[in-house]
């Protein structure tokens, strides 16, 4: 059986060979430590076009990702405190959550982040899921025939992630004009669309990232208010049994969600 390093060597060689004439890529192939090889692998996957891939590549990639993903502490619903009926907060990496579905904050291309090693959630989810995720997204987008609108949702397999599904939504982008009523409506629409598609597919639990905050500039506090209000209104109106995790990464978001859901200490 190959060890992780041997797998990475195979995968990086395969991915470099797909672009034999790209000098910028080939200048990086001197990666020697395991971490450097992981970074090279990640970057190569990030820029990879949604082209077919061999069975052998997938087998070795899946073996690598399974072991890499399991090295981290995997968190499931039973490890979390139910802060309000059906509602949970989790601070940490969304790709370490073993829930039915995790929400990806995508862009309208819906193919995953194309910037090598960019630290956005879209990049991290696609990296840990495997190259199959972009291939499935590409099939969905080709069938749709146009870009993905803001405030809607698509669902895919989660491949090598501990979750079963990834729900992809494009949140509103806030420019220098700031938050407008339309942008607030669209952020709520992103949450509703994810919940609806989760229920349509019979998911038991779904973990939301903080949609539109960060790169998309939505103010954290207002975004959290809309997130919680929309989820609670949906659960009340539909009597859905979905269990909903608000997944935060930054301390500021953890504080905000705690204050909204549990109250100030």
């Amino acid at each position: 059986m190959m060890n992780q390093e041997a797998r990475l060597d195979y995968l990086n060689h395969y991915l470099l060979e797909e672009n034999p004439n790209d000098e910028a890529l080939h200048s990086q192939k001197g990666a020697s430590s395991l971490d450097e090889k992981i970074a090279l692998f990640r970057g190569l996957c990030n820029i990879r076009e949604p082209e077919p891939v061999t069975e052998q590549f997938l087998e070795i990639q899946d073996a690598f990702l399974t072991e890499w993903n399991q090295e981290r502490k995997i968190t499931s619903l039973k490890d979390l405190e139910e802060v309000k009926p059906q509602l949970y907060i989790f601070q940490g990496d969304i790709t370490s959550l073993a829930v039915s579905g995790i929400v990806n904050a995508a862009n309208s291309e819906l193919l995953g982040c194309l910037l090598p090693n960019h630290n956005c959630i879209d990049n991290i989810i696609h990296t840990h899921a495997g190259v199959q995720l972009r291939l499935e997204c590409n099939r969905i987008m080709e069938a749709q025939g146009r870009k993905e609108p803001v405030g809607k949702a698509k669902i895919t397999n989660a491949y090598n992630l501990p979750a079963d599904y990834v729900v992809h939504t494009v949140g509103p982008y806030i420019d220098e004009r700031g938050v407008t009523p339309l942008k607030e409506e669209l952020l709520g629409s992103s949450y509703r669309s994810c919940l609806q598609i989760a229920d349509e597919h019979g998911l038991e639990s779904i973990a939301f990232c903080c949609i539109s905050t960060g790169e998309f500039n939505f103010p954290n506090e207002r975004a959290a208010e809309i997130a919680v209000q929309t989820v609670q209104a949906y659960l009340n109106a539909t009597k859905s049994n979905l269990k909903v995790v608000f997944n935060v990464f930054k301390d500021i978001d953890f504080e905000i969600y705690r204050n909204i859901l549990v109250g100030k200490e």
């Binding site: 146009r146 993905e148 609108p149 494009v170």
Partner: peptide
């Protein structure tokens, strides 16, 4: 209507 504009993609 579905539209693609400079600032957003919208249904």
């Amino acid at each position: 209507l579905n539209l693609e504009a400079s600032k957003t993609v919208l249904e």
